[in-house]
Structures are given as structure tokens and as C-alpha cells.
Amino acid sequence: MSANGNVELSINNHIGTIEFSHPKGNSLPGAILRKLAQTITEAGKNDDIRVIILKSSGEGAFCAGASFDELIAIKDFDTGKNFFMGFALVLNAMRTCPKLIIVRVHGKTVGGGVGIASAGDYTFAKKGASVKLSELALGIGPFVVGPAVERAIGCSAFSAMAVDATTWYDSSWATNRGLFNQEFDTTEELDNAVNSLAEQLAKSSPEAMQELKMVLWKGTEEWDDLLETRAEVSGRLVLSDYTKNFIKKFKAK
């Protein structure tokens, strides 16, 4: 695994598998976010791909969310907005991709990772894949990922996660509220289910799946502007002394 993380696309039998990785819990630095968004967009345009699997590497966390190293290095509003726009670009790439996206969640997921899981057209998880929106504890808030999470689980459940920013919500809670569509006891069962659905969809009509994708995401047409506005809010709040001090204390543990 690269020290700076990586995003890789592989294609097999009309299934495009996108895997992102980072040695710090599959966290998401700005460069990885932009590469992930670009890879999703390119896969959507590739005629050899009919369905996409989105996953992360390893057996630990699915995604540790934003890179604390980058967050603490932000010194001005433009840099802050640019960083959080990375999450907006990924979510909008998933939303506008004409291919159905299956997300495979194998472990714990924080912040931006919850957004990615929420934006899947079908999301599988392994039991034990707890989720947390920790942003408010950092002095920010789940502003960019909020629309995706709320779309998946509803306002009440999103409010619970956003307000109680220190609690891990277990995979059963997430499945019962629609964040995950199915959960499995073992990695083998998880992979079998992911591959089975992907193989089924790879044999389906590309035109029908594209039309279905448009129906599933109806009502989100304003997200380009909405998520940019949310990135501006986060870009301003990340400059606060509260956030800087929180991250310093966290990294010192």
C-alpha cells in the first residue's frame, strides 16, 4: 500500500471494481478524494463497464474519514473549502454516474466514509461495520455528507448521528435504517453477495439500469450547488481554534 494512498480500477466481465486505500485506516486526503471522484466518472463513461463495485482495502476500517493531517494544516478559507469539495466531488460523481454502484463496507466507517456508503445504489456490509458521524465533535459538522446520509436513512436517524457525534452506531442499526441494504457475518459471505449481485447486474440491460439510476436519484439535481455551499461552511469552521485544538489533542493520544 502506498504511503500516500491509492485508487485502482480493475475490469472483469463488465464489472468495474474501484478500490481505494490509505495506510491510516483508509482515510481520505484531498488527492485521494479527487482521484476517487475522477475514477468513478471515468468508469461511468467506460462502455466495457456495466456495474461498479466500490470498496476499500484491507480488513480493518472501511474508511476513517477526513485526513486529520490535512485538516490541521488548513490555514485559510480557500484551502478549507477546496479540501471539503473533495467529498462533494465524490458524492456527486456517485450520484451522476450512469452505472449502478455497489458499495462493499467491511469495517468501521467514519464521516466521509458514511457518506460514500450512503451514496451507494446498493450497499453491503459485514457485521461489526459500525458507523459514526464525528464531525460535530471536531467543531465542524456533517455538512457535505449530510444530504447523502439523510437521503439514505431519513432526517430522524441522520439527526441522531449528527448530534451524538461520539457514538458508534452498530451495523444492525445502520441496516435497519437503510444505510446498509444487507449485512453478513463473514467476509466470505459479504464478498459472495457483492459478487453475485454484480454478476447479475452485469448481465442486465445497460439502458434500463441507467434509466433506473435517474429515477433513484430524482430530486437531487441541485446537489452541485448544495454540496459546494456545504463545503464553504466546513471550510470556514475548520479554521476555528476549537477544531485545531481538538485535532492536536486527538493526535497526541
Rank of each mutant, 00 (worst) to 15 (best):
K24G: 03
N26T: 06
L89N: 11
I32F: 08
P23Y: 09
K213L: 09
V194R: 06
S118E: 13
K127G: 00
A162H: 12
I74Y: 14
G146A: 05
F83S: 10
N82A: 15
E232M: 12
T166E: 14
N192S: 02
A125K: 04
Y242F: 14
T243D: 11
C155V: 14
A66S: 15
A198G: 10
V144S: 09
K244Y: 12
K249A: 15
D224F: 09
V233H: 10
T79W: 05
E228F: 12
E221R: 12
K127A: 04
L100W: 06
E189G: 02
V149E: 04
N13C: 04
C97T: 10
L237E: 13
D69I: 01
D191R: 05
S67A: 06
Q182W: 02
A66W: 10
D225E: 15
A231P: 03
K108H: 13
S27I: 11
A174I: 07
W217N: 02
F250V: 04
G120C: 05
N46H: 06
L226R: 13
S10Y: 02
P147G: 03
T229C: 02
L239F: 10
S27A: 08
A66D: 12
D48G: 02
K251E: 11
G139F: 10
V114L: 07
N6S: 12
N192H: 07
T243C: 13
T167A: 07
E221W: 03
Q200S: 03
K218T: 06
Q182G: 00
K81W: 06
P142C: 11
T123H: 03
D225L: 05
L36G: 00
L36R: 02
A193L: 01
G235F: 12
K218V: 00
S196T: 14
H22N: 12
V215F: 08
I72V: 12
T167D: 08
N192D: 11
